[in-house]
């Protein structure tokens, strides 16, 4: 099951003409919130590199008292596509309950109509980031709560 805010993004992409989808993804890239200061100084335990991504790409995951997941990303401006993926996940999953994040299907983006614009192999960055988020949520004890 895809969490509602993420489903909304998927539908927006699916309902838009192909020529507009890249612009939408760029909007997510540009709208990705900067990494909060407190992570900049944090070590690799907190801010983790996603090795499957082509460019240096880091993410941090936190779970709050209400068992909701919060996501933080850091990706260079020269990698707008990866930033766009992060922006989609930030807007679609931030604040979602732990269980919803863990249940998000790995191929949730297949209906977004990006495969014709971005080579399918390169789209794997999106599932790699999601997989990394889930792994981190489990490490933080999210699965047992």
């Amino acid at each position: 099951m895809i969490p509602a805010p993420l489903q909304e993004i998927v539908d927006d992409f699916a309902d838009s003409p192909a020529s507009f989808r890249l612009e939408m993804l760029l909007g997510f890239a540009n709208g990705l919130p900067p990494l909060p200061e407190r992570f900049a100084a944090a070590g690799g335990e907190v801010l983790q590199r996603v090795p499957e991504c082509q460019t240096p790409f880091f993410l941090a995951v936190e779970i709050d008292e209400d068992d909701r997941v919060h996501l933080f990303f850091d990706a260079p401006r020269e990698a707008p596509t990866t930033r766009g993926y992060a922006g989609v996940l930030a807007e679609g999953l931030d604040g979602a309950p732990v269980s919803s994040v863990l249940e998000t299907p790995p191929d949730f983006f297949s209906k977004m109509g990006l495969a014709e614009l971005i080579s399918p192999l390169r789209l794997r960055g999106m599932s790699a980031i999601l997989a990394h988020i889930k792994r981190r949520v489990v490490e933080l004890g999210g699965a047992s709560s």
């Binding site: 993804l25 890239a29 082509q54 020269e78 707008p80 596509t81 990866t82 014709e116 614009l117």
Partner: peptide, 20 residues
């Protein structure tokens, strides 16, 4: 990166994408 051109390019340059 399929979006790099959109972030800014040489004035007047067109985009030719290897994939699409």
């Amino acid at each position: 990166d399929v979006l790099v051109y959109e972030t800014g390019h040489i004035p007047g340059a067109v985009k030719i994408d290897w994939h699409s």
